[in-house]
Design a protein around this nucleic acid. Structure first.
Lengths: 154, 154
DNA sequence: GGTAAAATCATCCTAAAGTATGAGTGAAGT
DNA sequence: ACTTCACTCATACTTTAGGATGATTTTACC
C-alpha cells in the first residue's frame, strides 16, 4: 500500500484550504469590522454559522454510510444459463467453434455435426482439434466438461 | 398539519441556546482575548473548530442516517446434486458401471479409467458398451449427457 | 486493395472408441 | 448344489476420433 491515510483526503485538504483562505480574508477585514461597534458579535456569528455549515457538509462527506444488508435467497433456475462470454472471448473461441462445441456437448458425432452444419467431416475435425487446444482438453468429453465448468456452454 | 416545522425542533433549539450562551461568554472574555497580540486569529480558529464540531454533531442528529442498501443475493445452489437412484436402478446400472460412468463424465479416456480402477482396458470397454445400451446412447458423450439429464451423475 | 482472422476442405496416419462374442471367477441367494 | 449376476478379460474387427500439415476461400476491417 502506498499513500493512503484515508479515502477522505480530498475533503480534509479542502477543509484546510478553506480555513487558511478564511484567515487571509480576516487579515484584510479585521480592522474594519472591529471599528464598527457591535460588529464583533456579528462577525463571530457569521464565522459560527459558516463553520456550522462546513461541519454539516463535512459530516455528510465523511460519515460512512450505514450498511444494511438484505439477504435475498434466490433459487438458481437451472434452465437460465448465463454464458461466460469473457471466457469464450479470452480463449478466442470463434462462433463456428462454439456451434460445434454445443453439438458436441449434445453427444453428436463429428459426422452428425458435419451433416447438421452442412460442412465436411474434415472441417469439423479441424474445428474440434482447435477447440481441444483452446479448452486445454485431450478429448471431446473433456472439452465438454471444461466448457461447462467455464460456463461457455450450458 | 399543525405545529411541525421539523421533527428536529429539539436539536434546533439546543443549537440556538448554545449559540446564545457562546455570545454571552464572548462578552466576558472579549477584551482579554483582544489584548493579547495575535490572539484574534487564535480566537477565530477556536470558534471555527468549535462550530465545525457542532456542525458535525448537528448533521449527525439532523440528517436521517445514510443507509446504503447492500442486497446480498445468496444463491441457493441448484447444483446440489441429488442422485436419482431410481433411474439408475431401473436401468440396472451396476456399481462398477456407475464408477466408470462418473470417470467418463470427467473426460477420462478408457485407458485412464482402466488404470485408475486397476482393471484392463477391455473391461472398461465392456462396461462402457453396457452403459451405452442402458443409457440409450451411441457414444460416450451422449451417455454422459443422458446420464446428467436423468440425474444419475452430477 | 491489402491484411488478418475465420472458415473451409484435403490427405495421411495413429490412437482411441466401440461392437460382437465368448469365457472364467466369485459372491449371493434359493 | 445350482443359478444368477456382476465383474473380469480376451480376441478380432470396424468405426470414429484426433494430430499434423497445407491449401483455398470468405469475411471483415483499415
Amino acid at each position: 500500500m502506498g499513500f493512503q491515510i484515508s479515502r477522505y483526503n480530498k475533503e480534509i485538504i479542502l477543509y484546510g484550504i478553506s480555513l487558511a483562505l478564511l484567515f487571509v480574508l480576516l487579515r484584510f477585514l479585521e480592522f474594519r469590522f472591529l471599528i464598527i461597534s457591535h460588529s464583533f458579535e456579528l462577525y463571530v456569528g457569521a464565522i459560527a454559522v459558516l463553520f456550522t455549515v462546513l461541519g454539516i457538509w463535512l459530516a455528510k462527506k465523511l460519515t460512512s454510510p450505514k450498511v444494511e444488508m438484505r439477504i435475498v435467497e434466490r433459487f438458481i433456475d437451472g434452465s437460465a444459463f448465463i454464458m461466460n462470454r469473457r471466457e469464450a472471448a479470452n480463449r478466442k473461441i470463434s462462433k463456428r467453434e462454439l456451434e460445434v462445441l454445443q453439438l458436441m456437448a449434445q453427444g453428436m458425432s463429428n459426422k452428425e455435426i458435419a451433416e447438421s452444419l452442412f460442412v465436411s467431416l474434415n472441417t469439423i475435425k479441424t474445428h474440434s482439434s482447435n477447440l481441444f487446444e483452446k479448452l486445454e482438453a485431450k478429448r471431446r468429453t473433456q472439452a465438454v466438461e471444461n466448457a461447462k465448468k467455464l460456463r461457455i456452454i450450458s
